[in-house]
């Protein structure tokens, strides 16, 4: 076993916030589907039992995506002070 002093420190504190990517993906999908929903053909609507599903799913995904982005803004990822130091140490280990 290596001694604690030369063992690399965890860089886990540098992990990004997944809420940004979930929010981003759902906003993008929501816009893509929602816009397509305005051009739904009668055939596509009939296929989905009369529901304009692209429009409704688009709205639903857009709202969920915005909620994730809002949650991230209101309650950002907190980095504990000592974890911050560990992250910096880990960073310098990686780059030298």
């Amino acid at each position: 076993m290596t001694s604690d002093s030369d063992a690399p420190k965890s860089a886990a504190a540098r992990l990004f916030d997944i809420r940004l990517l979930i929010g981003g993906l759902f906003v993008l999908y929501g816009l893509m589907l929602g816009i397509a929903g305005f051009f739904t053909s009668d055939k596509a609507r009939a296929k989905a039992a009369g529901i304009n599903i692209n429009l409704w799913l688009g709205i639903g995904m857009l709202v969920l995506g915005l909620l994730f982005l809002l949650w991230r803004m209101v309650n950002p990822l907190k980095v504990a002070p000592d974890a911050d130091v560990a992250a910096d140490a880990g960073g310098s280990d990686v780059h030298h």
Partner: peptide, 13 residues
């Protein structure tokens, strides 16, 4: 970016 140790890689630190 968040991986410096084996526990970071195998157990998300």
């Amino acid at each position: 970016r968040a991986i410096a140790t084996s526990e970071d890689f195998l157990l998300s630190g």
